[in-house]
Design a binder for these strands. Sequence first.
DNA 1: CGTTTATTTGAGACAACTCAAGTTGCGTGG
DNA 2: CCACGCAACTTGAGTTGTCTCAAATAAACG
Lengths: 249, 249
Amino acid sequence: MAPSQRVEQMNKELRKGHFLAEKDRFCAYCVVRGTSFCGMVPNEDMAQLSSQSRPLTLDRRRTLFHQGDETQSIYVVTSGTLRLYQMLADGRRQVVGFAIPGDLLGFPLADHNDYSADALDSVYLCQFPRQEFMQFLNQRAHLLGALLTVTHDELNRTREQLALISQKNAERKMAQFLLSFRGRQMRMDEEISVLPVRIPQADIADFLGLTIETVNRMLARFTREKIIAITDTGVELLNLIRLHMLAEA
Amino acid sequence: MAPSQRVEQMNKELRKGHFLAEKDRFCAYCVVRGTSFCGMVPNEDMAQLSSQSRPLTLDRRRTLFHQGDETQSIYVVTSGTLRLYQMLADGRRQVVGFAIPGDLLGFPLADHNDYSADALDSVYLCQFPRQEFMQFLNQRAHLLGALLTVTHDELNRTREQLALISQKNAERKMAQFLLSFRGRQMRMDEEISVLPVRIPQADIADFLGLTIETVNRMLARFTREKIIAITDTGVELLNLIRLHMLAEA
DNA sequence: CGTTTATTTGAGACAACTCAAGTTGCGTGG
DNA sequence: CCACGCAACTTGAGTTGTCTCAAATAAACG
């Protein structure tokens, strides 16, 4: 069964509440087990980790947490996509990333959230109350190393975005964005050439540091040149070679 | 005695090798003790930490380590400034930050350096061989928390740079850069209005995502309007109020 | 003192921005 | 089922700020 199908089935079962009774099995068979922080937790600690988690659903447009609010829980995304953003002093909004299945949201050692997070589609999450999670971490010091690795990965992703946004060419920005977003999706499914989310163009603009109009014109051009195709479920990358050329040239 | 004077004296003594004989005292009285990772190490662990450290000098223009090379040591800056940068696929250089006294360089859990680092002036560092440092960390799990905090701080600084670079206005970029650089210096000395380094304009350009010419024109304008003054030892901020206005307007 | 490296200044091109007006899609309530 | 309002997307025309290219000057270095 392909990963995406497994995700769908897991989510169905999740909705029906099948896993609530045996939470340790829930984690052990979780679709994002291999790609998330949870995956670094050794099997013997799994039961305890499971017992702390709580499944959570978030509808499109709903906010999971706000920048600056007290960190009460941390989350692992199991399905769907969220946008992560900061409001800047001058009223502009900087989208700092998009969270996809397997991503960890919220930093347990910080008292306040570094960014806001809201759902771009229906999102399923695994919630861990911060206090319990911290205790769990402190009991098993080796898990701090796992958290450190995840944090370091995020640091490197942020540096990547920095390199992306410092590009002066809108066409290249857009091409690199599409490719790097695909790269992250491939963590779960190697074969993917369809990005399974409709990210509002305004969010792409605030991510890349462009205006909505420029983003729109670029997407229109790519579509006209048959490099991508925009459907109502997401973006299909039709010509990866062209896209790579545009990203590097 | 003002912090900056203490730094100078410490460095003098460091140069004379006074502290080499009693390394634990070296750390205990270190100028950056209060502002660095070391500051989070409890007193009882200090002696061991000290015994692993080795003072190091780096001349202007010398490279401390290269991006991609194996991580052999990690460092704490005690004096001077370094530029940290990545070379991008298209040949461009992205300056990801400037390291000042108190900063930790190198991530012990990564096998390879994420960026290159070289000295902008005479730099004094405290070197910790990675292997020993890792063992030290593993013995005292609570120190992983300290490392995590430092890493998270760096993540937030990188997000700040992201917000900075996504500005479309060169004037504002420059003003924000000067102010944020001052903010970091103030960690050691509250009163500072002189940035004590001559950062090459090319480095500022690669940090802000501008061209050298634009950086030069902005600095020239700020100088003409008596907002800053450039001396051969650094940049003096003459009109902080104006600078704040330019940064926000 | 010649050579390299860094800074300064000007003129012109162009890509992305701003502003303005329209279109499309979608959910809600009559 | 249609009308309405809102949000997201689309397109055009004109402006502008930064880049590019080019060249001169000033500093740093052996």
